[in-house]
Design a protein around this nucleic acid. Structure first.
Length: 1043
RNA sequence: GCGGGAAUGGCGGAAUGGUAGACGCGUUGGUCUCAAACACCAAUAACUUCACGGUUGUGCGAGUUCGAGUCUCGCUUCCCGCACCA
């Protein structure tokens, strides 16, 4: 009887499907368990071995819980709206729905291939109109509600309308925009329908409004903050700029405190909770209004967390975008301010970040009055004050804040110490709160804890400020100028948005001729011919909202749809909801920490408020699976020209960084040019490149010139020449660098030659070396290839290497994220073909803890493969077939079995799948040694291994004579009595160090153990005749003798 | 800078405060074989010893304890996230 996974695995997968083994019903007497993995975006690349890690762990728990007697909901679906399908459509003209469908089929095939127990009858696809009608429905509900601060929940907007008609909005405590006008009932009633609707937009939980957004021109769309990384788009890495646009917003800020508080109710990883807390960014402080000298009608509001430092204020800074800047600027300063604003606006996010803490700013000529001491302080603008946070104005306290201190030093402003414990103000700021206040009027002599309440009370009495809590969290931009997303179910009438009737849902995505924005810059949906809305009873038609929803819309509630996927009356029916309630265990990647997981919580809180879901938090427990990384093969260009240039640059760079306002770009630096060229005040660039004709160079040239920098471009050819002929080098670089001749001749050149000694040096610069290339060919580390070998690598076929005939390349590996473009993807199908799905599943678990990221490495898989064969062998040691003994187990066999039951049960419960696999291996090895083939021992093992290796378990289960699925078996219990052994091998420590061991009966008393231990020769030797001070005996564990 | 996490053999990784290195890979030796592969058996932290044994060992330094990889305090390094947030 041979173990042949390729025969038994497909057989049982088919059988499970035919028998609907994994279909689950929404009722029953069993307790429920809802386990969920984050659904994937079905990309064109298919699954790689990293994806199933979480799914397999998920599957093990799902199957385990089922054996433990739970009714388990274990669904799967697809987050099938998204940008890649749309970009693919733009390139190929293939409708995203078709491409997405194909991708889904492929995903399904791959998922099925590893034997996951999903109930596919509950599959959801976010791009399916039957699904997104409910995404649209939820959107409409959000539109129709506002956040009431008295009730501390969302309430219907119609309530607000009634209140406005009776008493205006002065007494209403609701979350609204800062610029919401105050009106009386009479004023409200006198307004037109249109005007009333416009006012209501200030309150609705979703609303269109002008906002600075992250605009990505290359993608033709707005991105949310979490879709922007390091100033470029997360997807594609395109530049992102700030732009004022009309967009739908979600008033998530209304829920900031509840989203913060809710984190305390869920069992989620601390790092995820912290990321969310950080994103919400609650800070408690005070707002203070400063009057402005010579502008009696104006004041500036600042927010501070250190109101206690208010007597130390010596200047004020506004964001360049602050609305008062123009008004306050004096004529004398106008030129300077305007040029600063222009400069700041042209600075990209990347530049701002790269330049770090460099002080910039400009004086407006105006002065603000500190309300506490009536001192005038100069008003500056600077772009370190963010336009998007707080009041866009800060008070400068150089004695207490290092950044303010730097600013004051730079602009030569006063620094007033305010605490008696403060250190020398000439050296640095002192942000500590120690000591008692000085120079501080009202609070002189008080401590930090005493000061703030005094100041806030004074402010509130004077009505020029108050205690205030501020959040970093901003309302979420909800519009995307895309095609492949849920249409926003709104239409426009007289410039006011209305929701379409619920009976007209779903608002189906129309067909368009092209998936690009129109010539006039409108979203692709503007291309849909005759796509207009005609409300019931109206003869008119109106233009639909043309933007679509963001990727996170459909994923913010999908966990409810699984409960009741075919319901046509509601997004989830009340019975299904009452049964399943919420997700018991949610598994997914940590990369969704603030995106999906925060938005989902927000929608869930809203749905809870309107009584549509029973729990405030949708997922009680969350586990993050780690990432499985790939091993990328690299070919490094070594030696010869590129390397020489590279070394030259390495040698020159530090020198110039120290001495001159000069930056040097390296060859092949396309990816990093934005960073390399954010060089602040530098005035000269030497650029080394072989692609000076490209657009990017032009861009850099323009940037440099606009910044008033001189730019010199050396091509690679020129530099190579220069290196080959020292005189030319010196000459060329002398021209560029004026007085750097000595350095070039005497230091750089000799150093460069020293560095030449070993080409292994290049590995030192791996990270900076821009000469490494991903390959799909696996070379041994350290291999040196010649040009011909490299040309034979497929993806380099057409690459234009400027190498001499004796040019060499070295090879190496690095661990990176798995990605098609890095040629390091391992397909699970290949693993399944070679070793079987059971082996693949167990091996993924065996690699280490599920939560930990680790590189994929196939080396150890033979161990798991061998184990499965041995396990199989327990059932049929004879060639003939199954050979199972029916006699009763002996003590040793029972001990092995029950130890295994106990350990595996404990370990699945604590999500430690890797150690479970070890326990199976141990039990199998021991039973083999005993030649055990008894049904009473092996059958429970078959049940236990089912969650890990379902195919082999099902096969053996049937071979053992069962004809229903092993999935419906019962998880075995262990008996503590069987775990005991007759004797225990006790370690004997002397002063905590292991010196001997002794076998004692398991029921030995402390006194017996002590005398037995002391009787040992080895122990006596270590006692050296002394009598022990103390003997510690831990039954079943150890003996420690203290001398 | 702030927050979270990690550090254990050649490698992946085990260890409710109780014999550190389970389990697997790799390596070495052996059995089987004409041979190889597979399989099986044995050894495998380092140093030292013919051997018995001994010494040192969980990033570093202290501490608590009969006993610390595990707990406490102080560092170092690495990874992840956030970051001019007032």
């Amino acid at each position: 009887m041979e173990y042949s996974p390729s025969e038994i695995e497909p057989k049982w997968r088919k059988w499970w499907q035919e028998n609907r083994t994994y279909q689950v019903s929404n009722e029953g007497t069993k307790p429920k368990f809802y386990i969920l993995s984050m659904f994937p975006y079905p990309s064109g690349a298919g699954l790689h071995v990293g994806h199933p890690l979480g799914y397999i762990a998920n599957d093990i728990v799902a199957r385990y819980k089922r054996l433990k007697g739970f009714n388990v909901l274990n669904p799967m679906g697809y987050d099938s709206f998204g940008l890649p399908a749309e970009q693919y459509a733009i390139q190929t003209g293939i409708h995203p729905q078709i491409a997405t469908g194909q991708n889904i089929d492929r995903y399904r095939e791959q998922l099925d291939n590893i034997g996951l127990s999903f109930d596919w009858s509950r599959e959801v696809r976010t791009s399916d109109p039957a699904y997104y009608r409910w995404t649209q429905w939820i959107f409409i509900q959000i539109f129709n509600h506002y956040y009431d601060l008295d009730a501390d929940k969302a309430l219907p907007i119609s309530n607000l309308v009634s209140v406005f008609a009776l008493q205006g909005n002065a007494g209403v405590k609701a979350v609204c925009d800062d610029e919401t006008p105050v009106f009386t009932a009479a004023e409200w009633n006198a307004r037109s329908e249109r005007e009333q609707q416009l006012l209501l937009l200030h309150y609705r939980l979703t609303y269109p409004g002008e906002a600075y957004v992250n605009w990505c021109a290359e993608l033709g769309s707005v991105l949310s903050n979490d879709e922007v990384k390091d100033g470029v788009s997360e997807r594609g890495g395109y530049p992102v700029e700030r732009k004022l646009m009309q967009q739908w917003n979600m008033r998530i800020t209304a829920y900031a405190d509840r989203l913060l508080a809710g984190l305390n109710e869920v069992d989620w990883p601390e790092s995820i909770k912290d990321q969310q807390r950080n994103w919400i960014g609650r800070s408690v402080g005070a707002s203070v209004r400063f009057a402005v000298q010579d502008h009696t009608d104006t004041n500036i509001e600042v927010f501070t967390t250190r109101v206690d430092t208010i007597y130390g204020v010596t200047f004020m800074v506004l964001a360049p975008e602050h609305e008062l800047v123009n008004k306050l600027t004096t004529d004398a300063q106008r030129g300077e301010i305007q040029s600063y604003i222009r400069w700041a606006a042209g600075r990209s996010e990347v530049e701002r970040m790269t330049e770090g803490k460099k002080v910039t700013g400009a004086f407006t000529g105006a002065y603000a009055i500190n309300p506490f001491n009536d001192m005038p302080v100069p008003i500056y603008i600077a772009d370190y004050v963010l336009a998007g946070y707080g009041t866009r104005a800060v008070m400068g306290v150089p004695s207490g804040d290092q950044r303010d201190w730097n600013f004051a030093k730079y602009f030569n402003l006063n620094i007033t110490p305010i605490l008696d414990a403060q250190q020398n103000m000439d050296l640095a700021a002192d942000p500590t709160k120690e000591g008692r206040y000085i120079n501080s009027g009202l609070i002189d002599g008080l401590t930090y804890a005493e000061a703030a309440p005094v100041l806030i009370e004074w402010l509130e009495n004077k009505r020029i400020g108050k205690g205030k809590t501020q959040y970093k969290l901003r309302n979420a931009i909800f519009s995307r100028q895309r095609y492949w997303g849920e249409p926003v179910p709104a239409y426009w009438k007289d410039g006011v948005p209305y929701m379409i009737a619920e009976k007209d849902l779903p608002l189906v995505l129309p067909n368009v001729d092209k998936y690009l924005p129109t010539q006039t810059g409108e979203p692709p949906l503007a291309r849909a011919q005759g796509w207009r809305y005609s409300p019931e009873g109206s003869t008119q038609t109106f233009e639909y909202e043309l933007s679509t929803m963001p990727g996170w819309a459909g994923s913010s509630w999908y966990f409810y749809r699984y409960m009741d996927v075919h319901n046509k009356q509601a997004f989830v029916g009340p019975e299904a909801l009452a049964y399943w309630k919420a997700v018991d265990l949610y598994i997914g990647g940590a990369e969704h920490a603030v995106g999906h997981l925060l938005y989902s919580r927000f929608w869930n809180h809203f749905l809870y408020d309107i009584g549509k879901v029973p729990e405030r938090e949708f997922a009680k427990k969350l586990v993050n699976q780690g990432m499985i990384q790939g091993r990328s093969s690299f070919v490094y260009r070594a030696k010869e020209r590129f390397f020489e240039q590279y070394l030259w640059i390495k040698v020159l760079q530090p020198f110039f960084a120290e001495n001159g306002p000069i930056a040097i770009a390296e060859p092949g630096f396309e990816e990093q040019y934005k960073y390399d060229f954010a060089f602040g005040n530098n005035d000269l660039v030497i650029e080394v490149t072989s692609w000076k004709q490209t657009e990017k160079i032009e861009h850099i040239r323009r940037t440099a010139v606009a910044d008033g920098k001189r730019l010199l471009i050396l091509s690679t050819e020129e530099l190579t020449e220069a290196i080959n002929e020292p005189e030319t080098t010196a000459e060329k670089i002398r021209q560029a660098l004026v007085s750097r001749k000595e350095f070039i001749e005497n230091e750089a050149k000799p150093k460069a030659e020293q560095l030449f000694v070993s080409h292994n040096l290049i590995h030192k610069y791996d990270d900076d070396a821009l000469t490494k290339l991903h390959t799909d060919v696996n070379f041994v580390d350290g291999d040196v290839l010649d040009v011909e070998r490299v040309r034979n690598i497929r993806q380099f076929e057409h690459a234009n290497f400027k190498l001499d005939t004796n040019g060499k390349f070295t090879c190496s590996h690095e661990v990176e994220k798995m990605s098609k473009s890095k040629y390091n993807v391992v397909n699970p199908d290949d693993m399944v073909t070679q070793y079987g799905a059971d082996c693949f599943r167990m091996y993924e678990m065996f690699l280490g803890p599920v939560e930990v990221s680790k590189p994929w490495d196939t080396k150890g898989i033979t161990g798991v493969s061998g184990f499965l064969r041995k396990f199989w062998g327990l059932f049929g040691r004879n060639q003939g077939g199954l050979s199972i003994a029916e006699d009763a187990p002996n003590k040793e066999e029972l001990r092995i079995l029950h130890t295994c039951i106990k350990k595996v049960t404990d370990d699945v419960d604590r999500f430690s799948m890797n150690t479970c696999v070890s326990h199976f291996m141990i039990a199998t090895n021991e039973l083999r040694r005993l030649n055990c083939s008894k049904r009473t021992v092996l059958e429970p093992l078959v049940i236990m291994i089912m969650p890990f290796a379902p195919h082999i378990a099902e096969e053996l289960w049937h071979l053992l004579g069962h004809d229903t699925t092993v999935c419906d078996a019962t998880w075995p219990n262990w008996n503590e009595d069987y775990l005991k052994t007759d004797s225990v091998n006790y370690p004997i420590q002397i002063n905590g160090k292991l010196r001997a061991t002794i076998d004692l009966p398991s029921d030995t008393t402390a006194a017996d153990a002590e005398s037995a231990a002391l009787a040992l020769e080895q122990v006596q030797k270590w006692l050296e005749g002394k009598s022990p001070k103390k003997v510690v005996f831990v039954p079943g564990r150890m003996i420690n003798i203290v001398v």
